[in-house]
Design a protein around this nucleic acid. Sequence first.
DNA 1: GATTGTGAATAGATTCACAGCT
DNA 2: AGCTGTGAATCTATTCACAATC
Lengths: 228, 228
Amino acid sequence: MSRRSAAGAGLSPLTLNRLSLYLRCLRDLAERGVDTISSRDLANRYHLSATQIRKDLAQLGELGIRGVGYDVAQLHRRLSERLGLDRTHTLAVVGVGNLGQALVRFLSFRDESFRVVAAFDNDPAKIGTRVGGVAVRDSTELADALRRTEVEIAVLAVPAEAAQANYDALVAAGVRAVLNFAPTRLETHPEVPTKDVDLRIFLEELGSQLGARRDGDPLRLGRDRPPA
Amino acid sequence: MSRRSAAGAGLSPLTLNRLSLYLRCLRDLAERGVDTISSRDLANRYHLSATQIRKDLAQLGELGIRGVGYDVAQLHRRLSERLGLDRTHTLAVVGVGNLGQALVRFLSFRDESFRVVAAFDNDPAKIGTRVGGVAVRDSTELADALRRTEVEIAVLAVPAEAAQANYDALVAAGVRAVLNFAPTRLETHPEVPTKDVDLRIFLEELGSQLGARRDGDPLRLGRDRPPA
DNA sequence: GATTGTGAATAGATTCACAGCT
DNA sequence: AGCTGTGAATCTATTCACAATC
């Protein structure tokens, strides 16, 4: 079989997320001057699973050398490619409230792979201002503006009520993927990969792991051992 | 078997996240004046799976009425309880940069279940200022401050380099759970549930689903159908 | 001897399909 | 008749264990 056989096929989101993680580890290793690493070392250093690393990486082709390990630089390159980080993705942030503003600034910050090229809001007080070097435009211009600037990924950070309408407008304007921070179930367009990120759900997950209220046993805090 | 048998046991994070979702749907339904709903209707309205709803809810006990469906108000109450939302969780946000500030404001906003009671940063320029009604204190006071105000959940929004040290300080100060936004693999304390939220990984997931660069076929944007 | 890559085994999550209530 | 709750079946993900390779 050839070097780059069917290695580009569809990986599961779980695998993709781990690849991102591995990539970050490799960046760290490169900075520290490590140039070869075994799956076991990688796992130990960053609290991961060695077998899983091997299974995941094997999906991209034969990347390691038996008896030796993986070449840090080469693996880094290969992962970047597979994750599409070898080129710049253009982003638009829609909704420049608390979260939207933070996202614009956060994403504009020393990152070669993602670049915020447009921001939109429907609040007249915000339109025309600049956030993190990006001009905030009127949401109603969205369709026109996007068609000209070829935005690949949209970041939706509007209130729940406005999410679906904005999503539809974005898809109609030819955006190819959406990262949705609005706490709603969007009716998604099947051809546009959409990822929901709901901050409140993360908190609720933690909250529930803390155990529900036990009446008469109010809030054992401090250094106590947990119930289990 | 009694009404509240072993129903409080450990649900998987996946299930918990879906319960949060169902809860949000129920809130919406209650507002719209719906007071009974079947798993099928719930699924259709919010693009979920009916069987999965039933499986998930069954884990909390016998909540529905066969032939009829679920009582919206009662189910809402029951889910809130299980998710620990029937009481207020106290939060501390550590790191008041772009993201931290947005999180403080976002979380301070009309939410009964989570309340930001403290914010910390190590930047002298920020210490003493207020963000969303919360005073920013020096990170070095963290241990003392937390012991007095009994914070349950910490939100870590510091740069990667500072994350581990702050995490350790938080755990030592008796925090019971951590929501980590720093892009690092933390060495976690097993008794403190910790959830990583890495915004860049979400973007990378989308980026990779967009397909890698195909040389000579640069950026087909617009309304084209995707490769598949 | 060390380490990868992988088939087989296990664990976990989702879907199916239907018995059992109302 | 309609809908829940659930065992069985299926699908997906992870871990084990070892043959293949350096």
